[in-house]
Amino acid sequence: MRWAFDPRQGLIVVRAEVFGPAGSAVVSLALDTGATGTMVNHSRLMQLGYDPSAVPERVQIATGSGIEFAPRLVVSRFASLGRVRTAFPVLCHTLPPATGVDGLLGLDFLRGHQLLIDFRAGSIALDDGP
């Protein structure tokens, strides 16, 4: 299956559904092959019943502007690009509003698959590969 995006401008925005104790949220994430970890907005995780402030694990994240620390918690279920992960770890960090997205879909979600980004057709495929 192929997933559409706007190839002419901006970030590659994909949809994801994140599940938690309080329900589920459909959010927009930027597909980011420069990010090793998937990241979700702090408030969105709070809405889903998680408490990032109570998570003991803080990991260093290297950004373009320096090193920051962010909680990493495990969401019960995470779906995007036709793939579903259970017990999937996500970084809890909020990107600037100007990005227009609620986080990043990182390499940890993509590993083990074949990712095809077609900038002519504006489509993404995440397959099992040959």
């Binding site: 970030l11 927009s28 408030s43 709070m46």
Partner: peptide, 17 residues
């Protein structure tokens, strides 16, 4: 939005870059 508790919800930004 933390005051609302829908079981399933979506968040969308309707702007452009």
């Amino acid at each position: 939005v933390l005051e609302f508790h829908p079981r399933r919800f979506a968040v969308v930004f309707t702007g452009r870059p």
